[in-house]
Nucleic acid binder design. Sequence first.
DNA 1: GGTTAGGTTTGG
Length: 714
Amino acid sequence: MPVQLLKIIEGQSEIPLPSHLQKENLKHLQEGCDHTNKYIQGVVTLSYPLTKLGDGTDFFKIVVQDSDNLGSQINSINVLIYGKMAEDCAKILHQGETFIVAGFKVIKLPAAREDGRHNCHLEVSEEAGSAIYIYTKPRTTAASETASVSVAPKYVYTPLNHLKDGTVVNLYGVVKFFKPPYISKGTDYCSIVTLVDPSNVKLTCSLFSGNLDSLPKIYKVGDIVRFHRIKIREYNGQMQGITSGGFASLTFDGTIGAPVVPRTSSRVYTFIDEEQKTVEELRIWAASNISISGSATKLSDVQPMLFFDLTCQLLGKAKVDGSSFLLKVWDGTKCPYRTWKVPVEAKDLEGEKVLLHQLRNLAVDILVYDNHVQLAESLKIGSFLRIYSIHVKQASADNEDVSHMEFHLHGGTCYGRGIGLLPESNPDVKELKEFLESVNLTDSQNMESMCSMDIDSTFGNVTDLELHLQRCQQLSVTVLTDHQDLSTTELKTITNSAAPQQYRIRAKLRTYKPQKLHQSVKLHCSKCNSLQEVPDRDDFDFILHGSAGTAPNPELHNTSWYESVTWTTQEQKQREIAIHFVKHDEMLQHPEDTLIMIEGGTLKEIWKLTKKFKCVIPVRSTEDDLELLDLSAPFLLKYVFIMKFTLVDETASLNAYLFDHEKFFQIPASEILTNNFLQEKMQMTMNTLCPPGRKLGQFAVILKEGWEGKGSSL
DNA sequence: GGTTAGGTTTGG
């Protein structure tokens, strides 16, 4: 991939960097700290010639000065760049240019310096996952003639429905199918990738390269790719893409809200707003147009007779025979079935013996065949893998009464069958690593015959869960974008002041309750302001089922304040369900904005409806139902979503309640329980409320705009 | 410059 530069206009202060990156002050730079989402920016004051290290690695050293902090004692730092990045930077970088680096390693120097440079240096390389952004100043025509750099041309991207035979084009697409790179029968690695784009046209590309790194790093269906210089040919009446000279690719995570950071073999690349916008638009399009219902499974979820993708860590490997190879892997969960052990001699098994023994009940044997053997052999113990389309086969040996599960990675590449190596920076790997670290080895050794439910008890007690969550928290960063107008207030001040008022707080989350979504749903009577526990899930279902015996009371249909529809379920024991759309000022509203009441529905059905409608009230038509849910007045009972947090800061501890019946049920449970929410230091905007009659405790928290989506502010 | 593969699973 040719080196490309980003041109910025002199004096422009806003530099379009990925939004998850925050500028780090040199002062705060320390060895051993997490700088994952930080970048260092400065002006190149000195650069040394490109050299090669003893092992042949390219090496390039520069000095970068933080021009915002010229006054401070330490305002510059040495940056050591290794490998391909060194080569790329040496070609294009000039003194006086602005240099930005993220994903660097901070190394403390043995002795203190006296020249105003930092006592640490930065190590930067592709392997470390570094990204470099270089901003050139506009050059006069004369200057650009002498400069050895060229500013990136504006690329044109062809929609997939406008591809023509025999052309070489640039394009964007969402990955609909892919085969991870495998060794072809020729001289190269091969990866097959099928793309779609909003024109709804598919394009299957055959990508070849002798260098594994220059093939796109696709890990999932739904990933987004940008291909430069792909050749289009017609094959069997369809357009087909094939690598041509100078082919280059960027791959982006397809998850909405994830950082727009490309995976690429050359980490010096153009980065302009437009690119980010394109990716974000494709993510949104893909979210509703591509089914990513992948077959990714945990070992605890495997079912016989299926194919699944497994994200795992390699514990051991062994050659079995000429055409098969054994991989011993784990993902921290326990397969609920007896799994086979491929007999191999101890001396043939490569891997940490002690660990293999400790994890013998969690590790599974996967036998890979034929074309996968060569790749399997090259894998390093401890690496993280995604093995695609593993065949689960139930079998029983002659001398066994009980059957066991076998895992095979058959030969060939149908359905994307293969092995992909995941980098440590992959979010799924990060998650897996945390999980693996939390698995209690002592427990796992003692659960010879436990099933998957039992391994869940790894997280069964609060301490473990919290521990796990705390680990998650350490990785996340939340950027506050809302309510910047409010300054933060100490908790003590809040506890001493009268409600209602609005505050922004910054506090540590000590505990939260409840941990299960259904427990956070309460019934709220707007008449008397009381809150009632929703009956236990099973009871609730039972009550609703029980009432289903009685058909909805037709006398209660189509009153002046609601309109009703009824239908009969298709199941064996037919139930009649009625839905009442409550009018507002005697008018029906948009269904989504309407309060609806459902009679005779099961909990599942009600749950479904709550996702669609603003407010859903289960009602029944028998006398005793009316006792609980008074139908004589509208809007009597609502579901209210409640969560209790105990927050602490240096001054006080405060119970706060998330109380949301306005944006009813718009906060998905997953959002609440992911690290987005559970910040070690969490910030939120809150209203204090102490309405009469509500025994909630001290304060209710009304979360506002910041709740709208993933990665939003708190 | 250009073979490889050109999605669609199951044996060992």
